[in-house]
Design a binder for these strands. Sequence first.
DNA 1: TGTTAAAGTGCAAACGATTTCCCTTTCGTT
DNA 2: AACGAAAGGGAAATCGTTTGCACTTTAACA
Lengths: 341, 341
Amino acid sequence: MSVTIKDVAKQAGVATSTVSRVLSDSPKISEKTKRRVRKVMEEMGYYLNENARNLVQQSTKTIGIVMKHSTSQSMHDPFFPEVLRGISSYCHKQDFGISLTTGDSEEAIFQDVIKMVQGKKVDGLIVSYSKKGDKVVPYLIKSGIPFVVVGKPIVQQNQIIYVDNDNVQASKDATEYLLQLGHQRIGLIGGNRDYEVAESRLNGFLQAHRIRGMEVSDHYIKNPKSPGLVKQAVREIMNLSKPPTSLVVTDDFSAMNVLQVMREIGIKVPEQLSIVSFNNTSICELSSPPLTSVDTQIYQLGYESARCLIDEVKEPSEVKRSIIIPTFIKERESSSVVPKY
Amino acid sequence: MSVTIKDVAKQAGVATSTVSRVLSDSPKISEKTKRRVRKVMEEMGYYLNENARNLVQQSTKTIGIVMKHSTSQSMHDPFFPEVLRGISSYCHKQDFGISLTTGDSEEAIFQDVIKMVQGKKVDGLIVSYSKKGDKVVPYLIKSGIPFVVVGKPIVQQNQIIYVDNDNVQASKDATEYLLQLGHQRIGLIGGNRDYEVAESRLNGFLQAHRIRGMEVSDHYIKNPKSPGLVKQAVREIMNLSKPPTSLVVTDDFSAMNVLQVMREIGIKVPEQLSIVSFNNTSICELSSPPLTSVDTQIYQLGYESARCLIDEVKEPSEVKRSIIIPTFIKERESSSVVPKY
DNA sequence: TGTTAAAGTGCAAACGATTTCCCTTTCGTT
DNA sequence: AACGAAAGGGAAATCGTTTGCACTTTAACA
């Protein structure tokens, strides 16, 4: 149908190889010929067929993105879109395409990944989460395809390129921040402990206490398995005889849930309860009150992971360097000094 | 490198054509042969190379998604992620892949699209917005590739497949809803009028008034060009000597902005000001107070657009049918009867 | 003027499938 | 036993590029 390299060659009176070389701007072709060929391409409306090129080059200049299971979860939380934005930005700079998994169950996603890899549809992958018992990462290792994970891998960390925050530190910082404000009773609304990030945040939370020689009651620690269970967890924690005066919350979205519960049960934020959450996504500014949140620089997380991946695709490195993106606390109105009794 | 159809053929003692037929489960091949070939494929670890198939079939079983200019805008608003979720879901069912534009300027996106289309990387496209002066849609029409737009196309509506709400009606409903609550002074916080949706919502808003023979002051109508200008617009509108008692707001995100301003200037929602917004995204439930919002069924919008597109890819239709997704008002706490003075 | 090197092109073989014709078998019918 | 049809499978062309190698100019140098 469409005009091919052959047509151009014939029309321009050269060989197809010449046209191909013009396409890649090879120095073996004289300027004069290039100009002539380019003119013909223009006239005939030629455009390169990427599929043909992909086939022979054994590369697609496309990366695959593996979303967290349950697109719904990924999508509602602004985390995924933001990391995607970062990835997207770097890919565009490097003229790489993006291909998404479409599955909505863990198994379906796994199949998507296999198809991408074996079908040679992508040159590399970004895994946008790190989860216990996940099959994707082990598979990718075995396959030998370049990939990077956003978050700290559960297994074989030294063989995997990853981009992450220091979540232990970040959580420690958040907790320490509340301690400095004078809070003695701090609760944690964490996440599903199957995800590495939840585990790290819990550790940081505990460490901050330990450093000060403080014990934390188990009742102050909740790790709801899914976003839907957050409210329940918050209610439980606030129903304790001695409820915490502040909460470290694993993400902004959950913090909004917290805010709702407080509104329900008539507890004022920050007057009666301080909140620090994570990610500093755009809802922080828009909630009432605006949320103090640990900025995890999600965009950077995405951008750097794309950079690492594409570097690796271009020339595989022997040693797998990983990258830690710094975090900082963005203070807003959801946190204040501990109420005096 | 990897094992090809030829290797399998040799190993199984059949021709490549036979292997290919086994792959596509052709009825021309006996069950016995199929079993044998499949076993060999299994043993050798064969996997089909999609690029090779794409080349000969002239099709990629992949659709491209054109995001609204400024990924940032697309991404912060949960609209895009949600429509993507719907698209994704249907694509997965049909075993289609998804490819995203990566550009972050209108021009860059346009180039992405050209590359996808001319490079034959996709079988069709979904344009996730409808904007005045947009170059993508006209280009797609000219190219002849199947595509559908989410939203009502500005030009040549009858030649374009689109999936949309009846935004005029939806806006009329929202306005009527407030009128019924007794509000006499209703303001509109709309969107950038370059987008079709903003225009329609404005019309619906006006129509609802007209039906009752009411006039609307221009001062009550704001169409900030970008999300950043929403707050400013809200302040202006509330500074009028006779400010509105209720607001129709073009999306939930903007409504959150409204809420913030109200908090700043000490106006209580819904006691002193009612708000109805659009989209009924997840923040509605989480805001304080929870937002009354017109559910536009974004997920469905995405799902149906994917369905239309893939149908069209499979067999191009002569007449371009479009689809209107119904809307309904989800009442929450941001709206109430007009305050009595 | 002859020799050689460099520069510029062309030829043809990949890349890994699909698909259109054919050519064998095999089997049922008469 | 002979014939024809149907079923199963093979050979080779094709899709649109890239690329290693060989070939022809042209220019330069002795």
